[in-house]
Design a protein around this nucleic acid. Structure first.
Lengths: 152, 152
DNA sequence: TATTGTTATACTCTATAACTATA
DNA sequence: TATAGTTATAGAGTATAACAATA
C-alpha cells in the first residue's frame, strides 16, 4: 500500500516529474515567505516569535525563550531588550532565584500579536476565497495533517 | 456552497476553534522553519535563493535577481559578492551593455543546489512516510493547490 | 537624463567567548 | 562548581543615500 503513493525523490531517472516532497517543499517555502513578507507589521520575525511564544505559553525566562526559538541566549538577550525598549514585553528578576529573569508580554504586545495574526489570516483568506469549496476542503484536511506531522 | 467551508477569521465570537486560515498559517510557518533550519548546508537562505534562481531560470543580472527575491540592489550586490568569493557563481560584464553584469551559477553551485534539495526532500520524506497513503494523497493534492494559489 | 551597479553607512539578527551575579 | 544572563566582538543580511560608469 505504501508504495502506491511514492514520497521519495527520484533516484533512478535523471529528471522526473516533481514528486510529493518537491511539490510540498516549494509550496510551503513560497507560501511562508509571502506570509512573512507581506503581512507583518513593525516587528521582525524574531521579535514576533518571542511575542507569540509569550502570548500562547505565558511568561518565560530568556533561556527558555532561546530554547524555544532554537537560538543562543545572547541572541535572545538582544531580542528581548529591543522588545522591552518598545514596551512590548516586561523583564523582572525572579525573587526566588535572583539569577533568573521572567519575561512577559504587555497589553500592547498582545494587541500586536493579534493584529499580525489578523493580517496574515486576512492575506490567506483573500487567496483561499478564490479556490473552490472542494479545494478548500482538501487544503483544510492537509493543514491538519501537516500540523500533526510537523509537531512530532 | 461557499459558506459551507468558512475561510475567514472568526469575528463574532471572542475565541473560536482554529479556522482554516489559522491552521494553514501555523502549519506552513512551522514546516517552513524546520525545513530551512534542519536541512540547509553551508549557505544562508538568501544565498540559496540566488543559487536556486540561477539554477532554474538561467543567468541573470544582479538587478533581476534583486527583483526576483524582493530585495534592494545593494543587498544583492553583497549576496552575489559572497557567492562569488566562494566560487558558487561567476560575474561577467555584459559586452553589449557595459553597465550590466551577468551572474551565472558554477558547477559547484549547481551541485550545492541539488544537495540542499536532496536533503530537504529527504527530511520531508522521512516524515511523509509516517502518514497513511490516504493522508499522503490529501497532502499531494493540497500541495498542488497551494503552489497554484501562491503563484497567482 | 536615465539606468545599472557599487560604495558608504547603519541597523538587526546571529554566533562564540568571556564575564558577573547567584546558587 | 554550575547556572542564568549579559557584555564584547564579529559576521551576514537588510536598508537608504550617494556615487561612478554607461546608455
Amino acid at each position: 500500500m505504501a508504495e502506491s503513493t511514492p514520497t521519495s525523490t527520484p533516484q533512478r531517472g535523471p529528471e522526473r516529474r516533481p514528486d510529493l516532497a518537491t511539490n510540498l517543499r516549494v509550496a510551503v517555502l513560497r507560501l511562508s515567505r509571502r506570509l512573512r513578507n507581506e503581512s507583518t507589521l513593525e516587528v521582525s520575525e524574531a521579535q514576533h516569535s518571542v511575542l507569540s511564544a509569550l502570548f500562547h505559553l505565558g511568561p518565560m525566562t530568556p533561556g527558555k525563550l532561546a530554547e524555544h526559538d532554537h537560538v543562543q541566549r545572547p541572541s535572545m538577550t538582544r531580542t528581548v531588550a529591543s522588545l522591552e525598549e518598545r514596551g512590548l514585553v516586561t523583564r523582572e528578576t525572579d525573587p526566588v532565584d535572583k539569577r533568573s529573569v521572567v519575561v512577559d508580554v504587555t497589553a500592547e504586545g498582545r494587541a500586536l500579536v493579534k493584529e499580525i495574526k489578523r493580517r496574515r489570516n486576512a492575506w490567506l483568506d483573500k487567496r483561499l476565497a478564490k479556490l473552490t469549496a472542494a479545494e478548500r476542503q482538501v487544503v483544510a484536511e492537509a493543514a491538519a495533517i501537516l500540523r500533526r506531522m510537523v509537531e512530532q
